[in-house]
């Protein structure tokens, strides 16, 4: 706190120009036009405005994409979900297809914030904010999500697991914007799950974890495990995956996989929790999430 950087969350102090494109093309044009001039996308604002109030960001241009219809909403094409990046968390939560087929994402959304925030916040915003604790990130990562990044030059596709580069840093290049998330259709004999521990019910995670499993009889045919809030980015844990794949499901396998999750991470101590606690509960959460995903895939409760 000093004269130069003292905050006042009663106000929004940074001065900026506000742009409100009607279409995606217009939005991309604005982003391109101001690409070197500290331009930021405003969607829900629940992270961006907070960062602007607490002095972490001072954009010169804000491009409000919240009301661009073509960036919002979910389409199901050939079974796959095409999620517009500015679809709100609340809208996703209301979607029967997500509740029935994408448990990890549904549980992540339900665990997030409160209804008012979920009405404002968008799924793209949650990802682009680049927080290691973003709850939709591990869920969408294990569901094999592919992002569409658009710019005036065109589009490129990137796996979500390659999207996060560090706290607040993503693979987005200047002039680029996350426009769509593509999530595969639900396969038979698959299941997913998301678990998290916060300090209170509506909180940023101390640790969050998501698991996706495909089952072949009593064996794990394929799986993905992602953990958040334990590293500079949400992590996809390949070591656990290679152990689980092909294993016959049992309590012992779950327990071993949980231990591997704990061993694979090196979290820090911060305002929310301690490194030791994060390690300890990552194992517990991993076991529980793996079991839940397994049961959802049609498997029996392991003994």
């Amino acid at each position: 706190m000093n004269a130069q950087n003292q905050t006042n969350t009663r106000l929004l102090l940074p001065e900026f120009e506000y742009l409100r494109p009607e279409t995606k093309a217009e939005a991309l044009h604005f982003l391109d036009q101001h690409r070197d001039k500290n331009v930021h996308i405003l969607a829900g604002g629940t992270d961006l405005i907070v960062k602007m109030k607490t002095g972490a960001l001072s954009p010169r241009y804000l491009v409000n994409v919240k009301d661009i219809k073509e960036l919002s909403g979910v389409r199901q094409i050939n079974g796959a979900l095409h999620i517009g990046a500015v679809t709100t968390l609340a809208a996703l939560l209301r979607l029967p297809a997500i509740r029935s087929g994408y448990s990890a994402l549904y549980e992540a959304l339900r665990s997030m914030a409160a209804p008012a925030v979920r009405n404002m916040a968008t799924v793209g915003g949650n990802l682009c904010n680049g927080s290691p604790a973003a709850d939709t990130a591990p869920a969408l990562m294990v569901l094999g999500t592919v992002c569409t990044l658009s710019s005036v030059a065109g589009e490129r596709r990137l796996k979500l697991c390659d999207f996060f580069l560090g706290p607040g840093r993503t693979a987005l290049l200047p002039g680029e914007m996350l426009t769509e998330l593509l999530v595969d259709g639900v396969r038979p004999d698959s299941g997913s799950s998301f678990l998290k521990i916060g300090r209170v019910s509506a909180d940023i995670a101390k640790v969050n974890i998501a698991v996706y499993l495909e089952r072949d009889g009593d064996r794990v045919a394929d799986c993905r495990v992602a953990v958040g809030s334990v590293a500079p980015t949400p992590l996809l844990l390949d070591s656990v995956v290679s152990f689980l794949k092909g294993s016959t499901m049992s309590r012992q396998v779950l327990s071993e996989a949980g231990r591997m999750v704990e061993d694979a991470i090196a979290p820090i101590t911060d305002a929310r929790s301690t490194a030791e606690y994060r390690k300890a509960i990552s194992r517990i959460l991993a076991e529980e999430a793996m079991q839940a995903a397994w049961v959802r895939s049609g498997g029996e409760v392991p003994r």
């Binding site: 969350t9 929004l12 506000y18 409100r20 405003l42 604002g45 629940t46 405005i49 907070v50 109030k53 607490t54 804000l62 409000n64 919240k66 609340a90 914030a113 409160a114 209804p115 008012a116 925030v117 009405n119 404002m120």
Partner: peptide, 25 residues
């Protein structure tokens, strides 16, 4: 900063936090 809900209003029928909403939007 959106942590307490005291500023909740309804925008288009749904709850929103007025402390994080730009008037222009």
């Amino acid at each position: 900063i959106g942590e307490c809900g005291a500023c909740t209003v309804l925008i288009d029928g749904r709850p929103a936090l007025a402390c994080l909403t730009l008037a222009v939007a």
